[in-house]
Amino acid sequence: MYQKEVFKELMYQFVSGEISLEGKAQLLKMIDDPQYEDDLDFILRENYERIGPVKANPESTQQFIQSLTKKINTINDQVAEEADSTLFNWKKLVVAASIVLVMGLGYVAFNRNKVSTAIANIDKNVIMPGRSGAILTLGDGSQIVLDSVANGVLANQSNTAVAKKDGEIIYTEGSNARGVINKMMTPRGRQFKLELSDGTKVWLNASSSISFPTAFAANERKVSIVGEVYFEVAKDKHRPFKVTVNDVEVQVLGTHFNVNGYDDEGEIKTSLIEGSILVGKKDQKVLLKPGQQANIKKSGGVKVKALDNFDEVLAWKNGMFHFDNASLETVLRQISRWYDVDVVMDKGVVSRNFEGEINRDLELSQVLKILEGNNVHFKIEGKILKVMP
């Protein structure tokens, strides 16, 4: 692994709370090296709100503390002259100091007025887009934070190997494997890819989860989901593949389809891209053909409609927001999940519809500027997104 990748890995382990004592020591040696400055800048921006001090051992960090203090004391009056570019450098130093706190300082006092002034003026409205990450719960209840773990075998679940490779989790079934239920969950602001032991590929959108056996039974393959998940099911005519979301079941042999079953949506939408599926509740099921979508209201009833294209359905998987006459409420729910913000709508805001595409890798403020072209206004306060008329 390249050294920059090692540095990023250690930083994400630190932020997620998974870093080892050895990792802390290695990170302290690397964090002040100029070659890692861009990566440090990005990760601190992305995780600024999550970093905070805890008790630890001060001895292991004394050398880094001295280096950091020297750097702070030698910064000159360019702060005032280069506010836009320098404020985050001050922020970076302060957050770096909080890393020291977490890794072993205990207490650091900053007496320079410029630091206090810079901190007071930091733009706290920078909210970065979501990224790859998830939490995997194994059969024994132990959890692995997948945001930052390195490639390699992570666990063995009753003769089924669980490994991370190139940003996804892959289950490989061994001889005499026994099915144990695992669960993958993506918080808001995260998405992840998974390959089940039968070869089925699964993509989880933000704020979603899937529960599945590490090895499938001889007569069927069954998983349950929450939120939005895209499947490319491995063909196996002897073992139908079944997906349950609430009381709705999707049954397939081998196909590509997307299920949107978020709890805060009014209906469960199942869109078929390839193959055929049987979808519905026990008393009412329909057979879908490619290009069709089944809309199942939670109160009951199944409605099938034809899709002109799959741009809106698969936009999240392809790194986009795609709005096709989407209501303001629909747009805001997607933003809330991807940017991990809570939405508060003022009285007097009139719902309107949105058309077009926006990249999901933009900062939240950039997305909001685009949406404000439709006569709606936004204000970010910490993790609260206020919507105003």
Results as ranks from 00 to 15, higher is better:
N121M: 03
A134Y: 04
N151Q: 10
V223N: 11
A118N: 09
Y230L: 07
P129K: 11
L385A: 02
F14Y: 09
T69W: 12
M1K: 15
N325R: 14
A97H: 02
F323N: 06
V102E: 11
I380T: 01
D324N: 13
Q157L: 03
G301P: 14
L194T: 11
S85F: 04
V100H: 07
K347L: 05
G280W: 01
K386G: 05
K114S: 02
K114V: 04
V226A: 07
V248K: 13
E81T: 07
G301H: 14
L278E: 10
F88G: 01
W316T: 00
R360V: 00
M11W: 06
L204R: 03
T86D: 14
T330C: 12
H377L: 00
Q366E: 11
T117M: 08
K386M: 13
M320T: 08
R352W: 15
A177S: 07
K285N: 05
I31K: 15
Y262A: 12
F7A: 04
A96I: 15
G52V: 04
I210C: 11
F257M: 06
Q284S: 12
V100K: 03
I181A: 08
H322D: 15
F216H: 10
E82I: 04
V344E: 13
K281S: 11
V149A: 02
Q334A: 00
S327K: 08
G356Q: 14
G167E: 03
Y2C: 01
L204Y: 05
P53S: 04
D32W: 15
G261Q: 06
T244W: 08
D166M: 03
E82H: 12
V233F: 14
G300N: 09
Y339I: 07
M388R: 06
D324T: 11
D311A: 04
T186K: 06
K70P: 13
L154G: 01
V279H: 04
N176W: 14
D33Q: 04
G179T: 00
K29T: 05
K8Q: 12
W203C: 12
F310V: 07
N125R: 09
E357D: 08
S327L: 08
A96L: 14
K29D: 10
I358W: 13
V302F: 13
V233Y: 13
N125V: 01
L368R: 12
V343S: 02
Y230P: 10
A234V: 00
A109M: 15
G348D: 09
E274K: 15
A56H: 13
V304G: 00
S336M: 09
V376S: 10
E363A: 02
I135W: 00
E249Y: 14
K124R: 13
M103T: 03
Q62A: 08
K114P: 05
D123K: 14
I19A: 09
Y12H: 15
L105G: 15
S20D: 12
Q191I: 07
V100W: 06
Q143A: 02
N47R: 02
V202N: 03
V229N: 06
R50K: 15
V79C: 09
G300W: 14
S327Q: 11
K289N: 13
G104D: 11
I127W: 04
L371S: 07
T86H: 11
R190Q: 06
V252N: 10
E220A: 00
R190M: 00
F212Q: 01
I75R: 02
